[in-house]
Design a protein around this nucleic acid. Structure first.
Length: 758
DNA sequence: GAGCTGTTCTTTTTT
DNA sequence: AGAACAGCTC
């Protein structure tokens, strides 16, 4: 029992401890591995897959490997490929996030028609579902409370609705909205993220109950990473996928790292899964990451399982520092990190963690001033880049002409394409003149005389017809696509941003064409779509789930030009200090970690109930266990945070004194002078962002007004006894809206006769 | 709409 | 604790 894992092809140079080995070799029908923090969880997963594949002759195609995030999915395939370079993409088709695997099943294995969609369905943006819901609320005159928080509400109460509850807890029409929304999504042949899971689960169950399940439909093995992060729907999906007892299930997770239960159900999914599948529980108790002091502290915060065993000798104590306020601390950190760097520490091995997103603002500003390279971990995808967001929508409608919502969004975009009101866009989209003319291509020609909006609409409508013949060598080039949609005009060449927009769009189209071309070569045969349109649809769908990486955000990196050619290669993390929230830090590790703002009222953040407090405690646990060698915790005498008080967090008292090294940083008068200026700047910046937010909100309001009431563009003057003369903005049966210089927009009930139209 | 009172939420984020 | 919203009356 003490010998190492057999040095066969399976283990190669990898050495596993006895617990890891037991997990790899276990073949119970269901097994959950309680993997302590830093215990080599992913290694076990990889070795398990290779063991099953190479030793037990389970084809990779018969395994489903599920992760919660794309990042984790990428890591698994990358590590697998490193061990076994011969593995093809075809073999790991069943590897991915819950959502992408569900989509794969719906596209190629399950009878999605039975649920009301067709195989050509597309995937919705999360925001789009909220927009669609708002349209339906208006259309059907539904009464729904808290409309501005609709997205959150819809997510939260969706489960209840699925469980057959009749009414929302707010006693409004929300539960009448769900069926309407579902019907509309079927009409427009598109699915939300939740639909992908829900519908595939239902269809899997259905096919099993029908008894006509072919063997191939059920995998031999289902392997799940980070199960503690899954929700009820994902558990249902697993159960359906398992198809009774046909597949064996192996799941890895850590109940002590549940930090997202606020968005799912309150239960700890690790134990829920264990009980639901009657799974055998194994543990991985040995931590390979942190030094002895950090682990001993972490053990005080363990909520489930036995203590974490360390693998390293005792070392440095944990530093606890008291700073006057965030500004003073930022300055201290800048100096401290620079010193670390001069001592040979790589910036990328240093992380600053905090509870709230906006705590990064001060750090960013001060670090910049002191020349400490740093990066706030917020990933950029095409969704954050307006022009790409638009072009994706153009393509989305082009490959799914039922998706009228997207068509309207494309046509009404204020920055791209010809300006078009929502009303007009709806007319164009909802009453496409004669289908026969469109079929002959006449519409596109006729539209030449009409507005650009109509032209673009017919281009999108005609996309499938125009490119349907394209296969193999006949694939269109990015330039052809650019020309087809007449993007030169649509992107507004007169605008300052045109050059950049054109570059972004061309890069995107190049990527699209490259992927479409490759897909055909490697995946020939039944699953290889010979048809260009089909491939574009596939690309657009997977990028909806994947949030496709863009190189756009990378340019901001410092003055020095890094490798000019970043094409193809995965973006490499810049050598910079990482700033991130505790949540974002999960799964990462750093040599040196600063955890800031460990004040009562911030860590833990004010809690409503005991469960919330427990989750805050797990969050703190996750934070301190990111550190390998050096951990520094700090609290403020004068925290800026509302709700936080100038006392150390009670979590600091939970760490035994002999593990700590206390050091207070007292104010230095001279530095305070320096900081006053900064403080002013940051406050100004805050005001600015607030203003921007307000403006954005007002713009949204304007759009809505434009939609509801016909806007009067001719300047009609009005008079009011208090506000004087103003301009009429809009008017309907009940209301008059006017703008008065010095008073802004005002609305009046017509019945009161307060305003006189001149 | 304006103005009032009472209620609810505020943070963390992935697909 | 304070903002944002719902629902009421005028």
């Amino acid at each position: 029992m003490t010998d190492c894992f057999p040095e066969s092809a399976v283990s190669g140079e990898i050495r596993l401890n006895e617990y890891q080995r037991a997990a790899v070799l276990d073949e119970s029908p269901a097994c959950v591995v309680n993997a302590n923090v830093g215990s080599g969880k992913t290694t076990v997963l990889i070795e398990k897959i290779l063991y099953l594949h190479l030793e037990r002759n389970v084809p990779l195609e018969r395994m489903i490997v599920l992760t919660f995030t794309n990042k984790a999915a990428d890591e698994i395939t990358a590590r697998l490929l490193k061990r076994e370079p011969g593995i093809t993409p075809e073999q790991v088709r069943g590897f991915g996030t819950f959502h992408s695997v569900a989509m794969g099943l719906l596209k190629s294995d399950l009878p999605v028609e039975k649920a009301g969609w067709t195989k050509e369905f597309t995937v919705m943006d999360p925001d789009e579902e909220t927009d669609l819901a708002l349209d339906l609320i208006a259309e059907h005159g539904l009464k729904v409370k808290y409309k501005n928080r609709l997205k959150k509400r819809m997510e939260q109460e969706y489960q209840n609705w699925l469980l057959g509850k009749e009414e929302s807890r707010y006693k409004d029409d929300l539960f009448r909205l769900y069926p309407l929304l579902e019907e509309e999504k079927k009409q427009q042949n598109k699915m939300s993220f939740a639909d992908l899971l829900r519908v595939s689960t239902a269809l899997l169950k259905n096919s099993r109950d029908a008894g006509g399940s072919e063997e191939s439909r059920h995998p031999e093995w289902i392997i799940v990473d980070e199960v503690q992060d899954s929700d009820r729907m994902q558990l249902d999906f697993l159960e359906a996928l398992r198809g009774g007892e046909k597949a064996k299930i192996f799941a890895v997770g850590d109940p002590n790292q549940v930090i997202y239960s606020w968005r799912g159900t309150g239960d700890n999914m690790f134990f829920l899964l264990k009980h639901r599948f009657g799974a055998k529980e194994l543990t991985l108790p040995v931590n390979y990451r942190s030094n002895a002091a950090i682990l001993e502290a972490a053990n005080r915060f363990l909520q489930f399982g036995n203590r974490i065993q360390g693998s390293r000798e005792a070392a440095e104590r944990i530093t606890v520092k008291n700073h006057y306020d965030p500004f003073q601390e930022a300055e201290y950190l800048a100096g401290r990190i620079r010193a670390l760097h001069e001592g040979g520490k790589a910036y990328r091995e240093v992380a600053v963690l905090y509870r709230l997103q906006h705590q990064s603002e001060i750090l960013l500003k001060v670090f910049e001033r002191y020349g400490v390279p740093c990066e706030v971990s917020v990933k950029k995808t095409w969704r954050d880049i307006p022009v790409l967001n638009w072009i994706v929508k153009v393509l989305r409608f082009s490959v799914n002409v039922s998706d009228v919502q997207t068509a309207v969004q494309v046509l009404t975009n204020p920055s791209y394409g010809e300006k078009c009101t929502k009303k007009k866009a709806r007319d164009i989209v909802k009453n496409p003149e004669s289908e026969a003319q469109y079929a002959t291509g006449d519409q596109v020609r006729n539209a030449a005389g009409k507005g650009g909006a109509e032209r673009l609409f017919w281009k999108m409508r005609g996309f499938e017809r125009h490119f349907s013949g394209c296969t193999g060598d006949g694939m269109p080039s990015p330039e052809e696509l650019f020309a087809y949609f007449e993007l030169r005009e649509a992107l507004h060449p007169a605008e300052e941003s045109y050059a950049e927009d054109e570059r972004l769009v061309m890069d995107f189209l190049k990527k699209l064409c490259a992927v479409c071309a490759v897909r055909g070569d490697t995946a020939a045969g039944e699953s290889g779509n010979r048809d260009f349109v089909k491939r574009v649809r596939e690309f657009i769908n997977s990028s909806a789930l994947y949030g496709m990486k863009t190189d756009a955000g990378e340019k901001e990196a410092e003055g020095e030009h890094e490798s000019a050619d970043s094409s193809g290669k995965e973006e490499q993390p810049r050598n910079a200090v990482r700033l991130m929230t505790l949540h974002a830090s999960k799964g990462l590790e750093f040599e040196t970690v600063f955890l800031i703002g460990v004040n009562q009222g911030l860590i833990p953040l004010r809690c409503r109930n005991y469960e919330q407090e427990e989750e805050e405690r797990r969050l703190f646990f996750v934070g301190i266990t990111r550190a390998k060698d050096e951990l520094e915790l700090s609290w403020y005498t004068n925290p800026d945070e509302p709700g936080a008080i100038g006392e150390p967090s009670r979590y600091l008292r939970m760490i035994p004194e002999h593990l700590l090294k206390r050091a207070d940083v007292r104010d230095e008068k001279q530095k305070m002078q320096n900081l006053r200026q900064l403080r002013r700047e940051v406050q100004e910046q805050k005001r600015e962002t607030q203003e921007q937010k307000r403006e954005a909100q007002e713009q949204k309001k304007d759009e809505q007004e434009q939609l509801s009431g016909g806007r009067n563009s001719g300047q009609i003057r009005v008079r009011h006894r208090k506000y004087g003369e103003g301009v009429l903005l809009s008017e309907d049966d009940m209301m008059v809206e006017a703008e008065f210089p010095g008073y802004g927009k005002k609305q009046f009930l017509k019945a009161f006769g307060e305003v006189e139209i001149l």
